[in-house]
Nucleic acid binder design. Structure first.
Lengths: 136, 136
DNA sequence: ACAAGCGCAACTTACATTGTTACGTGATGT
DNA sequence: ACATCACGTAACAATGTAAGTTGCGCTTGT
């Protein structure tokens, strides 16, 4: 695993879960499938639970499960839940050197945010059920 | 500078250059504007030169300049030149554990690549002249 | 000849991510 | 009750990447 491991792991796992909702999977099993560590899995899926995409239960034969129908979870939900923000600029840091530069700076930030938003819109058009079923 | 420094730096610099093509800027000046280092600037702009978006010359009063008209440089050109690949998955690494998992894996990769492509298409609709002029 | 600038390589530093271990807590089954 | 399973979380090490920095060689213009 290298690039975009979190998004890739999440996508992979949720798609897999979509093929058998109602079924509980342990973080250990998921980790084995994904070739990683149970703690890492819990870290990533924990964010998805905060976004009400997944639910988790302790104890025997429990673990993780989808919290919604597979056709009601979009890639945008996942992307936002993971707080990836590939594009959007940071804005924290350097105070503006001169006013002209500052105008351009904030303008560039606006552009980047627009791009980020259009990316999310694009992601909202695909559900994990779509991913599972290969319907583009 | 933190997130997306390269893309942000490139966008900012090229937009600024678009307001005065034909004019040479040194990496030192650019670095001062961007609050970073001349070498870092040359590293980033070097990739844009490889993509024929910029040209550079040594010697007195030279430096960097746009290699094309500002309305002929799109954000997609910049994105591709920087080889950011925010979305696309890596694929290098783990051999497939089982065939079913492998099918899903490659399927997820396909989805991610599709998304990446649609992002680039979106970026191709905006030139750095547009960025400069605030026309969305 | 001299200075300005880029090109490039090597190194350090900072930071983010992942992997790993350990321990606490709640739920389940015997 | 009790042991077990599985999550929740913290702490730490290992890793990788980007940024910053320095130095030197080469080209160009004065």
């Amino acid at each position: 695993m290298k690039r975009n491991s979190r998004l890739s792991l999440a996508l992979h796992t949720l798609s897999h879960m979509a093929s058998a909702p109602e079924h509980w999977q342990t973080s250990a099993d998921i980790a084995a499938h994904a070739g990683t560590n149970p703690v890492v899995v819990r870290r990533v899926l924990g964010k998805l639970r905060q976004a009400n995409l997944l639910e988790s239960e302790k104890g025997h034969a429990k673990g993780w499960r989808l919290a919604r129908a597979p056709n009601e979870i979009t890639l945008a939900d996942i992307y936002v839940a993971l707080e990836e923000s590939f594009i959007a600029s940071d804005d924290s840091g350097v105070p503006p050197p001169c006013s002209v530069e500052h105008a351009l700076q904030s303008h560039v930030s606006t552009i980047l945010n627009d791009i980020e938003n259009s990316l999310v819109e694009r992601l909202a058009n695909t559900t994990i059920l779509d991913v599972l079923h290969l319907r583009k």
